[in-house]
Write a protein that binds this DNA or RNA. Structure first.
Lengths: 144, 144
DNA sequence: CCGCAGTTGACAATGGTTTTCATATGAGTT
DNA sequence: AACTCATATGAAAACCATTGTCAACTGCGG
């Protein structure tokens, strides 16, 4: 039910889909260019500016597919916007700047343990959790 | 321009606003009736069914006001919908059952400290964080 | 009883995201 | 190269929760 292991996607480390088209490669490239969480609209605008014309619909579809495949991370800003980012593998959380989207991947083993223990203590099973930290980074704080 | 501190709102434990109107009381009552997170539209529909006619706009406004005042908790479902719930005072997180919505309020002072410290260590200011734990409660686990 | 700030609500407008559907494209086949 | 057809694309329309608008209403203070 999940994809078969493909160790030779053709150069990229990310499985794009059945057909690695120009558009999909462009979206993946755009994600690779920045280490910031960006919205679909952001990416669409960036691509257009760069001359890579990709339809907004396609950007949305591609991002969704990548997220479903676990190749990129999604999270929702406090405004309810979905933002995407290419992340390292494995479980981690994010420290995100509200101003520019600058993101630091963080780990908190103690939190994981605590969350799981607490849930079990209340009789909950199949425990998952979400944890994101938002703030204003040093740079953004200065040019308020 | 904003509300003055009033320690005696007039009987309710929740400060509704400058004027405790029929509509606001109705919304507060609806929240008091259930201990699960519900959307504004849900509440609006429930009120209408009960005969308490309150405009959708007013429901939204009231919920937002209550949330701003810290009298109720808001969180966003994975679909991006805002849901509200009457909670105890103070900062806390939620342990929510995926099956029935059963919610347990939890506290994790250590997590708060850790989150703030970590953010500051990376030069972030005005730190906020979101943390929710999802799982399957004992009851739901049995009748899978 | 008057007046005005606070409230209300029908309706329009927003805006991110998804759907629709006609057209295009690419990988395999003949 | 020509053919096929599932897959992919994208412009435009649909969605839909939420917010803005603004005229009408309400209730307490004076």
């Amino acid at each position: 039910m999940d994809k078969q292991p493909d160790s030779d996607a053709g150069g990229g480390s990310v499985t794009i889909g059945a057909r690695p088209t120009r558009q999909r490669k462009a979206v993946v490239a755009a994600l690779g260019d920045s280490d910031v969480f960006r919205s679909a609209q952001d990416i669409h605008a960036a691509l257009r500016e760069r001359g890579d014309d990709v339809g907004l619909t396609t950007v949305y579809r591609t991002l969704q597919a990548l997220a479903d495949g676990g190749d990129i991370d999604v999270l929702r800003t406090p405004d309810g916007e979905s933002v995407y980012r290419q992340c390292s593998n494995g479980h981690h959380h994010h420290l995100v700047c509200r101003g520019c989207g600058l993101t630091v991947e963080i780990e908190g083993p103690a939190v994981e343990t605590w969350a799981t223990k607490t849930a079990h203590a209340h009789g909950f099973a199949e425990v998952e959790h979400t944890l994101e930290i938002f703030g204003t980074c040093h740079t953004c704080a200065q040019r308020h």
